[in-house]
Simulated assay, not measured.
Amino acid sequence: MSFAAIPLTGSKPEQYAQLAAQAEALLAGEHDRIANAANLSALVYHALPELNWAGFYFFDGTELVVGPFQGLPACVRIALDKGVCGAAARTRTTQRIADVHAFPGHIACDAASRSELVVPLVRDGALVGVLDLDSPVPDRFDVDDQAGIEAIAALFVRSLRTDG
C-alpha cells in the first residue's frame, strides 16, 4: 500500500479533522502498536509545523520506554515522576506546557525544545504510554492542538489488538 499525505487546509480544527482521517487510513486493519506508532509519528511530524519531535513512549509496567518517533535521538527511559511525559503518564491527563523550562523536573532530551504537548494513552483503564510532541517555539500548542492530538491518540489506542 502506498500512502501520500494530503496537505492540510482550512482552520486548525478542520486541519486536525483531515489529519485524523489520514491517521484512520494508516491504521485501517493494522493492530501492531509499533507499526501504528511508527506511521503516526511520521504522519504527525511531517503534517504539523514547528515540531522538532513527535513520538511515543510505552509503559513497561515501571517506566516509560521510547518507542517509534521522528526527530533527534531521545531519552530512552523516563520515570513516571520525571518530566512532562512522566506527569502525563502518572496523572493520565494531557500536559500542554507553554514553557518547558518553567516545568518542574523537565527532562531536556533536546535542548532546542521550548514547548510540549503530551497525551496519555490509556486502554481499558491501563496505561499504554504517551504520545509526545515537542516544539522549538514557546507556547506552540493551543487547545485546538490538544483536542486534535487527543483525537489522534484515541485512534491509536482503538487500533491496538484486543488480545494484547
Rank of each mutant, 00 (worst) to 15 (best):
A154C: 06
L51I: 09
C85Q: 02
V66Q: 15
L160I: 03
R161E: 07
T62A: 14
V122R: 05
L80V: 00
A88Q: 01
D142F: 05
E63N: 11
D145F: 12
G86C: 03
A89P: 15
A89I: 09
V119A: 13
A89H: 10
T62G: 13
F59A: 10
A98D: 03
R161V: 04
I107H: 10
V66M: 14
F103E: 03
C75H: 01
F103K: 05
G83L: 02
F103R: 06
D134V: 03
A151L: 09
I97G: 15
A102G: 06
R158L: 09
T94S: 15
V137I: 13
D124G: 11
A88V: 04
H46W: 13
L160A: 08
V130R: 07
V44C: 13
I149N: 13
E63F: 12
A154T: 00
A154N: 02
K82P: 07
E150Y: 10
I78N: 06
V100E: 12
G129V: 00
R140K: 13
A147F: 05
H106N: 09
P73L: 01
A111P: 11
V137A: 13
A74S: 07
N52D: 11
A126K: 14
A108C: 11
I97E: 14
T91D: 15
C75V: 05
I149G: 13
A54D: 08
C75Q: 05
F56D: 11
R161A: 15
T93H: 15
V44E: 15
D132C: 09
G105A: 11
F156L: 14
P138W: 00
Y45S: 12
L80N: 03
V100C: 14
H46C: 07
L51M: 09
K82Q: 12
G105E: 10
R114V: 01
G55D: 06
L64D: 08
L155H: 06
G61V: 02
A147C: 11
L80C: 01
V128P: 12
N52T: 05
G61P: 14
R77M: 01
A89T: 11
G148K: 07
P136W: 00
F69R: 08
F56Q: 10
P49A: 10
A79Q: 05
R161S: 15
L51G: 13
A154D: 03
A88L: 06
T162Y: 12
A98S: 11
A47T: 03
R96A: 12
D144E: 14
R92E: 13
V65Y: 10
S159K: 00
H106F: 11
V128Q: 15
A154Q: 05
A47V: 03
P73Y: 02
P73T: 00
E150F: 09
I152G: 09
A153P: 11
R77K: 12
A126N: 11
L121M: 03
F103N: 09
V137T: 11
S159P: 09
A74P: 04
C109H: 07
Q146E: 14
A79I: 04
